[in-house]
């Protein structure tokens, strides 16, 4: 993989997108579809005032907490189910049900049962994300290579070395896949959670702008959001992915 990628085409495509947006805004001529420059002005103002960093930071904290919790719990449960067919037979229907509960239902129920508190918000996100992690890691555990496990047993690797050198490298791609899809899912759910029951965070701000019909504000916050997601992808997930792949032919 070359260190500097050719950015001409992605850059051109972004400019094209902005041009279409500009054109549409000019044709519409309405404050309900502001031009790109207007949106970026709002974005600059919100960043300078500190409002956007504040709410974005809170959302990111919630994201980190719920993401970490659901990955840890989901991995533990998924590995356990993958290793024990009996456990899996019993809990499989639970997982299927959990996968199919609408996100909105868990959010509402968490707020109803636990009140409009932080714990309820985090719990709602974790419950939404958990089954997805469980299923992915269960799949990964089921596909652990038996030949290599036998080899590790014959050569007396011991528990820790087997986990670190034989099992973990095989599960890592699945963990990464769960992290990717999980992040995308949590981003979307966390906003709804904030919108329904929190008085800060990106979701709360979007709700505010919605009530004022301030489309420029909504778009400005969205752009900040997209930017952060891209940064996480580029700076965290992609390097991890490359690292996991480096031994392949």
């Amino acid at each position: 993989m070359p260190t500097t990628r050719d950015l001409t085409i992605p850059l051109l495509s972004l400019i094209a997108l902005a041009a279409i947006w500009q054109l549409a805004a000019m044709l519409a001529g309405s404050s309900l579809l502001p031009a790109p420059m207007a949106v970026f002005e709002v974005l600059g103002r919100e960043v300078a005032s500190g409002r956007l960093p504040h709410h974005l930071g809170i959302t990111l904290l919630r994201l980190a907490a719920s993401f970490g919790l659901s990955m840890l719990l989901g991995a533990a449960i998924g590995i356990a189910l993958g290793r024990s067919p009996r456990l899996d037979r019993f809990f499989d229907s639970w997982v299927v049900i959990a996968l199919n509960i609408p996100a909105l239902v868990t959010i509402i129920l968490c707020y109803v049962w636990f009140g409009l508190v932080e714990t309820a918000a985090i719990t709602a996100v974790v419950i939404n994300k958990l089954p997805n992690v469980i299923v992915t890691l269960r799949e990964g555990t089921r596909h652990l290579n038996r030949d290599l496990l036998e080899m590790a047993a014959v050569y007396r690797f011991g528990r820790v070395a087997t986990l670190r050198h034989v099992i973990w490298p095989q599960l890592f791609p699945f963990v990464l896949a769960a992290a990717r899809t999980g992040l995308a899912l949590i981003w979307k759910i966390i906003l709804v959670v904030e919108l329904l029951g929190r008085s800060n965070g990106m979701g709360y701000q979007l709700h505010l702008y919605f009530q004022m019909f301030d489309v420029a504000g909504i778009l400005a916050y969205s752009i900040a959001f997209i930017g952060v997601v891209q940064l996480i992808e580029e700076l965290l997930l992609r390097p991890l992915d490359r690292r996991a792949q480096r031994w392949r032919r």
Binding site: L148, M151, R248
Partner: peptide
Amino acid sequence: YVFQNPRLLPW
């Protein structure tokens, strides 16, 4: 134990 396939850890 030399297995029928080499069974080396690819990573």
